[in-house]
């Protein structure tokens, strides 16, 4: 299947026309976020948490973290979660020793009525993350009308029964005064969407107060150059798996 034209449009021209990719992420089911590189894992987590929070009450969130992720990127930090705009009572953090446990906890969480959304953070490739596991999670999520976000780092995007598949990358932030790093900025590329949402790349910032993603502030006369609005390294080859 050739990629739709819209998939090839990326960067600031598309960004200025569209809002955020939340529409493509609102369907119940499994959504996969692949960190472009290991260094983007934390951004992928930030993006996943942001998607869970935005436009929803944002209570009953479960974040399951693979222990290997903790070793590679450090453990989740409460003060940082708070600075994302998460209230302590809204998030349950579960540490999973291995991928099998991670998936098991994900299934249990999806079965629980009080849970609104689940984020699973896995590190590396694992045989347990196969089509069967994806289908089980998908069925549970759809039957419970819930969303499960599977964040993968140090793994290449592969075919799966997920609703959508994304490549997430950290983007250069809009600098503040005196060249200080600004709000968290992400670049998300939709690689595949089961319901045919146009494939493209969004660049956006996280707004803690509004608890939503916003387009990067329009370029003003400040320090920012136009180029900083793009993913810093540029999109690296869209994949056609699925």
């Amino acid at each position: 299947m050739p990629l739709p034209l819209s998939a090839q449009i990326s960067g600031d021209s598309a960004c200025s026309r569209a809002g955020t990719p939340l529409g493509a992420l609102s369907t119940p089911g499994v959504h996969e976020f692949y960190a472009l590189s290991g260094a983007d894992a934390v951004s992928t987590h930030g993006f996943g948490l942001g998607v869970m929070l935005s436009g929803r009450p944002g209570a009953g969130l479960v974040w399951v973290v693979h222990d290997l992720t903790g070793m590679e990127t450090g453990r989740p930090h409460g003060a940082g979660l708070q600075e994302m705009g998460i209230q302590p009572q809204d998030l349950l953090l579960v540490r999973a020793r291995n991928i099998a446990t991670l998936l098991g906890v994900g299934e249990d969480a999806l079965r629980t009525p009080g849970v609104e959304a689940v984020l699973l953070s896995a590190w590396g490739e694992d045989r347990a993350l196969n089509l069967t596991a994806g289908r089980r999670l998908g069925l549970l999520a759809r039957s419970g009308n819930k969303r499960l976000f599977l964040s993968r780092a140090a793994a290449a995007p592969r075919a799966s029964p997920a609703e959508s598949r994304w490549s997430i990358q950290s983007a250069a932030s809009t600098p503040l005064m005196a060249g200080a790093p600004g709000r968290p900025a992400f670049s998300a590329t939709l690689l595949r969407h089961r319901r045919g949402a146009p494939l493209r790349t969004w660049t956006m910032e996280w707004d803690r107060e509004a608890r939503s993603f916003v387009e990067p502030a329009p370029v003003s006369g400040r320090l920012a150059a136009l180029a900083t609005q793009r993913p810093a390294a540029g999109p690296t080859g869209l994949r056609r798996t699925g």
Binding site: G78, L93, A96, V105, P113, G114
Partner: peptide, 24 residues
Amino acid sequence: VRLDELVDQLVARLGPEAVLRFQP
């Protein structure tokens, strides 16, 4: 109530140190 049941279930399986909430 249901969330508490999930917590109980996970604590029984993974141990109390694996199921956490943050408290600044």
